[in-house]
Design a protein around this nucleic acid. Structure first.
Lengths: 164, 164
DNA sequence: ATCATTCATTTGCATATGCAAGTAATTTTC
DNA sequence: GAAAATTACTTGCATATGCAAATGAATGAT
């Protein structure tokens, strides 16, 4: 079941990715734009969490996106360490042009499902995602007292690369 | 909504990935093992489709996995071009050791959902995936007008054999 | 059979990724 | 109020990835 979810998600990503190719942006770029579009402004760290893109990868991606004129990357006024990331007018325009593609995929993926089923699926997925979020990355042990739930995390270990 | 699906899938993948790290395998490796486990034997191309891993990436991944003793890569008897990919006993054993982790994630992701809801979600996801599958392969049509081939023939190089 | 084509997989190459170490801007501590 | 600790990013480096070209094996045409 995690397998199915992952596979469906990956597949969706690959397909969508190919469809936005003509617009000269990649899927990670779209994820970034979509977040900025909906919330207006982000700092790097927040954005990394939101998009599940590694912070270092994202850092470099944002430089690229700035070069492409899609976003503005400036130092935050209140905190000289942080970045203030926003869409440029061009970035906004492109977002608006891409959004319909997402809808197209929604329609495509939901083919044959009744509106009620679509609604149900969306809600269930949302709850599942919330579960993942909660159990998520390195939940600090100091939880707000309430629902005790031990989430087993793997002990840190040497990172495994592809080749031996 | 495609966004939610992709995000949930990616998130699931990242989390699961970290959990199997101690077993010295990556998520793509697990996807491969899982398929071989369930079906016994695959050719490279089939496996690539099944796992949504690019064929060239998979080709190299399989070499790595063979070196790790997880799979056997041999020439198909009936077709000298194709590979016959199977799990080694070690690969099988590892699959059986990893499977419970997948179940753990199933439980984690489905927290708070009733058995009926879980069943519904699974069915809906399956239908969505099927939709993607159907729309998938024939989507991208590329212009393939015949054009003259470059007659640049490089000096022949020794072909690497199956096992090192 | 011989040569051209098709098919299955591998390899070259130019990025993309992710962990760890590095840098710069706050905040904390004494 | 300056070193020490923390926070927010950036960069070095060792792979991982994907497209296209290359390679070798089967199939088809002449």
């Amino acid at each position: 079941m995690p397998y199915l979810l992952n596979r469906a998600g990956v597949r969706m990503g690959i397909m969508f990715s190919k469809d936005i190719e003509p617009h000269e942006i990649t899927l990670p770029m779209w994820r970034v734009m979509n977040e900025l579009w909906h919330r207006g402004e982000f700092r790097l760290g927040e954005l990394a969490e939101r998009t599940d893109i590694d912070i270092s990868t994202l850092s470099r991606l944002l430089v690229t996106m700035q070069k492409k004129g899609l976003i503005v990357r400036r130092r935050s006024g209140s905190d000289g360490r942080a970045l203030s990331l926003t869409l440029t007018p061009e970035g906004l325009e492109l977002s608006e042009r891409i959004a319909p593609l997402a809808l197209h995929y929604e329609a495509l993926a939901m083919q044959g499902l009744s509106p009620a089923e679509v609604k149900t699926l969306k809600q269930l997925l949302q709850r599942v995602f919330q579960n993942l979020e909660n159990a998520g990355p390195e939940r600090v042990e100091k939880e707000t007292a309430g629902k005790p739930r031990a989430v087993k995390r793997a002990a840190p270990r040497a990172r495994l690369k592809d080749s031996a």
